[in-house]
């Protein structure tokens, strides 16, 4: 609120109305509906539904299938987050150091941001294709017979690689901007205090980058959980079958293919809770960040 704000009574309401109504209709209503229908069992023939309490949830946690998907999602998320953060950090540190060609490197390392996940997945299919995909051949060279869409681990590997490739640019951009916001003189003071570049990085640069890294951690977890849908969907070629799936993909499969409205809604609600936990976590980290500056 500005000190000298306007005091017109109706204009702000009119200004807020479009945003609020869109949110009400397309956010709160569906979210509420998801919570509501997670407690109901949909008649398979579409004739009404009956209240079943927490049955949908207990069914989920009891299902081997769901636990397997959840387990995969956790591993997938950890791998994608760790690898894309680590690679991006390395590249950002180097890009921050070089002077010659700095701009070209920056462009080359960030442009993939603009590629849609399913397009990345499609490129993945071409590269991991059985028989003549270049990466398949490369793995074959080491005696690894790579079978995308057939072998569970192989498909998972392809998903991780493509998802990491797609996520490096965002992490790179944030790490680079984080590095550039560290005062030059602090780096120089460190040069005078410590002659080892590696230990300087871990003592000074990395702690000062920690707020960025924490923030990116949340962003990456969210990415791996939700935004990789397009990658997963293309790499399994729309055939879930025996392939590794993420939780979001399962919401989609159960809800739209299996017509299990209640089960799918319960899964949605579980994801909502997960995101809420992440957000609370993120806020606590932001509070910590204030101490630095």
């Amino acid at each position: 609120m500005k000190r000298a704000g306007f005091s017109n009574p109706w204009l702000p309401v009119a200004l807020l109305l479009p945003q609020l109504s869109i949110i009400a209709i397309f956010f709160y209503w569906p979210a509420g509906w998801a919570i509501h229908s997670s407690f109901f069992l949909q008649d398979p023939f579409g004739f009404g539904s009956s209240f079943v309490g927490l049955d949908n949830y207990t069914d989920l946690f009891g299902a081997v299938e769901y636990r397997k998907v959840a387990g995969f999602t956790v591993i997938f998320t950890l791998l994608v987050t760790f690898l894309s953060l680590a690679i991006a950090l390395l590249l950002a540190v180097k890009a921050d150091k070089v002077i010659r060609g700095a701009r070209s490197y920056r462009t080359l390392l960030m442009w993939v941001y603009a590629i849609a996940p399913p397009v990345a997945g499609f490129l993945g299919i071409m590269f991991f294709q059985q028989g003549n995909g270049p990466i398949t051949q490369f793995f074959g060279f080491f005696g690894w017979e790579f079978m995308l869409g057939v072998n569970y681990t192989d498909t998972a590997t392809a998903m991780v690689i493509v998802s990491v490739w797609k996520q490096i640019p965002v992490n790179f951009i944030f790490f680079l901007s984080g590095l550039q916001s560290i005062p030059k003189s602090v780096q120089e003071a460190a040069v005078i205090d410590n002659n080892s570049g590696t230990s300087r990085f871990w003592d000074i640069t990395f702690p000062l980058l920690a707020p960025t890294a924490f923030f990116l951690l949340i962003i990456n977890i969210t990415y791996a959980l939700f935004d990789t849908f397009g990658v997963v969907d293309t790499l399994v070629k729309g055939e879930p079958g025996n392939n590794p799936l993420t939780l979001v993909y399962k919401v989609y499969v159960d809800g739209f293919r299996g017509n299990d409205l209640g089960g799918s809604s319960a899964q949605s609600v579980i994801l909502m809770v997960l995101v809420l936990i992440l957000t609370v976590f993120q806020f606590r980290l932001i509070e910590r960040r204030i101490h630095y500056t």
């Binding site: 005062p183 003189s185 040069v191 205090d193 410590n194 002659n195």
Partner: peptide, 30 residues
């Protein structure tokens, strides 16, 4: 010779203190 091995100390215009370290650690780091 590397700056750290020149046996010098420098006071910067904006102090260049390590923001994540306590005063004690700032002084002890070198």
């Amino acid at each position: 010779v590397d700056p750290a091995d020149r046996d010098i100390a420098m006071v910067f215009q904006n102090y260049a203190l390590y923001p994540h370290m306590s005063v004690y650690k700032n002084m002890a780091y070198g």
